Amino acid sequence: MQSLLLAYPDERFHAELPLVRRAAAAFPDPVGAPLLRFADHAEQAPRTVLAADYVATFDHRKRCCLFLTYYAHGDTRKRGVALLRLKQAYARAGWRLGDDELSDHLAVVLEFAAAADDAHILVEHRAGLELLRIALRDSGSPWADVLASVSATLPALSGDERTAVARLAAQGPPEEQVGLAPYIPTAAPAAVSRPPGTPGGSR
């Protein structure tokens, strides 16, 4: 469900809000309540305003980037390797990404985690997730509730993860740019193609 709420708020997004409400009501309160708050906001806000807010938040603020490997690697060579590893992990599970989709977009990772019942990619990128959650919270973004719901499904932060979050908050991601094309597109990806019979989940 969280992945649906991180998509660009187009007609499909608004059509799926009732489904999100029904599913969120069945989740434990730390997971479901933030999703219901966001759904309230999304239904009440003018659609053009919500869409403009989405673009201003996720396309124009580096600390609110939805591409998880950016937090650890920035636009460096290591990020290309990390993207490839994620794509290979999806392929092993029978998933196929479109040519215009990046494997580290949070909505894609959430779809995979829910369908495969495997949150290891989210856990591996926990520092970046927490930095995104904090940035959204501090900016007063309604999408902070969606990230709060995601965090509530994951194990508590360990000492090393807290250190990593603090480092990212203070320094930001690496900035090596040599020989690289930008990795951050302005458009959110479409949903991942799932293998037949794959169930959905809370993410």
Rank of each mutant, 00 (worst) to 15 (best):
Q2E: 07
L4R: 10
Y8H: 11
Y8Q: 08
P9V: 03
D10G: 12
E11A: 14
E11H: 09
R12V: 14
R12W: 01
F13T: 10
A15G: 03
A15S: 13
E16P: 01
E16K: 04
L17N: 07
P18N: 03
V20T: 09
R21L: 12
R22K: 12
A23C: 04
A24M: 09
A24S: 10
A25W: 06
A26D: 11
A26T: 13
F27T: 05
P28A: 05
P30S: 09
P30Y: 06
G32C: 15
A33E: 15
P34D: 05
P34M: 02
L36T: 05
R37C: 02
A39C: 08
A39V: 10
D40S: 07
H41A: 14
A42H: 04
E43H: 03
Q44A: 14
Q44T: 12
A45M: 14
A45L: 09
R47Y: 00
T48F: 02
V49E: 14
A51V: 01
D53F: 05
Y54L: 08
F58G: 03
D59W: 04
D59Y: 10
D59K: 01
R63Y: 02
R63C: 04
C64Y: 04
C64F: 07
F67H: 15
F67I: 00
L68P: 00
T69S: 05
H73G: 01
G74L: 03
D75M: 02
D75V: 03
K78M: 08
V81Y: 03
V81M: 02
A82C: 00
A82Q: 03
A82H: 01
L83M: 10
L83K: 00
L84Q: 08
L84C: 06
L86M: 09
K87P: 01
Q88G: 01
A93T: 07
A93D: 13
G94Q: 06
R96Y: 05
L102T: 07
S103K: 06
H105C: 15
L106Y: 15
A107T: 13
V108P: 11
L110T: 07
L110D: 12
A114D: 11
A114S: 13
D117F: 14
A119M: 09
I121Q: 11
E124Q: 10
H125M: 02
H125Q: 15
A127P: 10
G128A: 06
L129G: 09
L132P: 05
L132G: 01
R133P: 11
I134M: 15
A135C: 02
L136S: 06
R137P: 02
S139H: 13
S139A: 14
P142H: 10
P142E: 11
A144N: 12
A144F: 08
V150R: 09
V150S: 05
S151E: 11
S158K: 10
S158V: 04
G159F: 05
G159I: 02
T163P: 00
A166I: 06
A169S: 15
A170M: 11
Q171N: 14
P173H: 02
P174I: 02
E175H: 07
E175S: 03
Q177H: 12
Q177P: 07
V178S: 04
G179M: 13
A181I: 04
Y183V: 07
Y183W: 08
I184F: 03
P185H: 08
A187K: 10
P189H: 07
A190C: 11
A191F: 15
V192N: 05
V192W: 15
P196Q: 11
G197L: 04
G197K: 13
G200K: 11
G201L: 11
S202E: 14
R203L: 15
